[in-house]
Nucleic acid binder design. Structure first.
Lengths: 259, 259
DNA sequence: TGTGTTGGTTCATTATTTGAACCATTGGTA
DNA sequence: TACCAATGGTTCAAATAATGAACCAACACA
């Protein structure tokens, strides 16, 4: 593993519950030597990817990240385009809606809306990357994304995240085939034992999925009729997002096999 | 210079006019060897900071940047808080308004609004870091920011960016002192020969400036009365932003000297 | 067919990263 | 008061990872 990767991995230790981290915490989380970690943190801070609180000496994500996000958003808006659309969706269904993009063999959260209409709601942590085989969004992307990605994930090890995670390659292949037929994915007790979620793929300019929109519901609140409604809302919402991002919807599913 | 910095600098070559760059372009811009650049780009892409177009093989800023920006924004909203406030300001004055945070000895753009009310307008590139000595925002930050920062910038070399850039340390110190008295900074033909801009500091929790809001106007449209109006709007806007970010306004300017 | 691009790879050389041991400061506590 | 266990940070010889000249292959153009 290169030095660059080691340093960039530091940025992934931040989360909703840990927006600031000290040197010792990074050392514990990364398992690396204190001197190494310290130099990495300093170099990240020098480049604006971290900033250090002058008093507490704790580090948090720095202004360079906001700047680069703005650069990407002004040249190729994604979040700004997706956010209002998923906000409308969240308002319609009253549940957590999130949108993620493919990053390697994981999904990288881009935008999420928690309407907060109910007392209990699914809590979404945008710092957490989502596994493809264990989430509805991931299944949608496996079914409609690049063929190479599908092959790699189906071949690789499949970690169990909850009681109903599919961990067998053949089972997963069958599930993905069914998702491709249905055009929508469902995952219950697959990533979290108390959550059911559904997801629909969002396509890029070449008709290959680049990400997915998902609705996540606490298990107790997920009646069949509600879920049918959510599925319909997701199909419509995903189509709107694909269009807004300049994508073209998937072609005939049978063609997907050769993508 | 460390490997991490060399890699991260690649991300700074993107701009509004160059949202995608190829390997050879990175090589030209950085002056480094092709093999080195290539490995840096691959490692950045593996971590989601870049993504490569499958056909053109060009690189652009990746989804990890959006994800990390979301993490920072959900735990400590800056852009989401500032954007509506500067949008209101931009609507009021009808000119470019931008907000930036201190990053090292430069300012890192965080949010900007171009109302587009006039045929000509100042064009803002959020990828470009702003020098402290040559911009109104920078002067505001030098006057009200950390003392150490002021000392370092006043001691260092001051590059000329336009015909009226202050490049002498003593002159700059005097100018900064005047800005501190006035509470607002003005820069004409200092960063761009066709632009006048004014800026007011935004403060952090400890009463030290963390950034600045600025209004930039094409030179021909900058009458004295308009500028007086802009200055008043900036003072009010900056105060609102400071408050919204949980900052505390600057104390007595004389105390600033010891900060 | 030759020339100049482009993106990408290889491997011996070289320079950078690494980490055990070190210091300084703070906060708790016996 | 003295002591212990944290914290953040630094040093420098040893080990490892980064570097870059030379190399492909593909494409475009004349």
């Amino acid at each position: 593993m290169g030095t660059i990767t080691k340093a960039l991995e530091m940025l992934n230790y931040f989360s909703r519950s840990a927006p600031e981290l000290g040197l010792s915490e990074f050392v514990r989380l990364s398992g690396r030597d204190k001197a190494t970690v310290h130099r990495h943190l300093v170099e990240l801070a020098e480049n604006g990817f971290l900033e250090q609180h002058p008093d507490s000496r704790a580090y948090r994500l720095g202004p360079a990240i906001l700047r680069l996000a703005t650069v990407r958003e002004t040249t190729a808006p994604t979040r700004a385009v997706v956010l209002p659309l998923i906000a409308a969706l969240a308002d319609e269904v009253g549940e957590l809606v999130h949108f993620s993009l493919i990053q390697g063999e994981l999904l990288s959260p881009v935008a999420h809306v928690e309407p907060g209409r109910h007392g209990t709601q699914v809590h979404f942590d945008p710092s957490e990357m989502l596994p493809l085989h264990a989430t509805a969004s991931g299944l949608a992307v496996l079914a409609f994304g690049p063929r190479g990605l599908r092959d790699r994930v189906l071949a690789g090890p499949l970690a169990a995240h909850a009681s109903a995670t599919v961990t067998d390659g053949a089972d997963l292949a069958a599930l993905v085939a069914r998702v491709r037929q249905a055009g929508i994915a469902r995952a219950e007790k697959s990533f979290d034992d108390e959550v059911t979620s559904q997801a629909a793929p969002v396509f890029g300019a070449d008709g290959v999925a680049i990400g997915a929109v998902s609705i996540a519901v606490p298990l107790g609140r997920a009646s069949d009729e509600k879920c049918a409604h959510y599925a319909a809302a997701l199909r419509a919402g995903a189509a709107r997002i694909t269009e807004a991002l300049g994508g073209t919807p998937a072609r005939d599913p049978s063609q997907m096999e050769t993508t």
